[in-house]
């Protein structure tokens, strides 16, 4: 299978990764060969097979509804690119 340039740009937008037209050529060639490899599994008959999402057959553990976390804002925001008054700053979100 071959992905079109438009498809590459569509998924790059979904993934929020800028891909320049120059990069797109290489990305497209490599993705094509990877999807050739991936395509091999499509020949297997999997009718009625239950998909396997986890490596183990376990169920979700539950916990008590108690507050265990304390305020660690200062520590967590010590690695932040932009903060003010305890808020993370991002380019204006228009709605």
């Amino acid at each position: 299978m071959a992905l079109s340039s438009a498809e590459i740009q569509r998924i790059a937008h979904l993934a929020r990764i800028e891909i320049t037209p120059a990069e797109a050529v290489d990305v497209r060639a490599k993705l094509d060969s990877i999807f050739d490899l991936i395509g091999r599994m499509r020949a297997v008959d999997t009718a009625g097979i239950v998909p396997m999402s986890h490596a183990q057959d376990v169920t979700l553990p539950l916990r008590e509804d108690i507050v265990t976390e304390t305020d660690r804002r200062e520590l967590y925001q010590s690695v932040s690119p932009a903060v003010q008054n305890g808020l993370y700053l991002v380019p204006k979100v228009i709605e």
Partner: peptide
């Protein structure tokens, strides 16, 4: 990009779901 593609609308069943099924096999 691969991961985004295989989960995206119209491709999920053919890739992601299929892979989960072959994983079980």
């Amino acid at each position: 990009l691969i991961g985004t593609y295989v989960l995206s609308h119209g491709y999920y069943d053919a890739y992601y779901l299929k892979a989960q099924q072959v994983r079980r096999l």
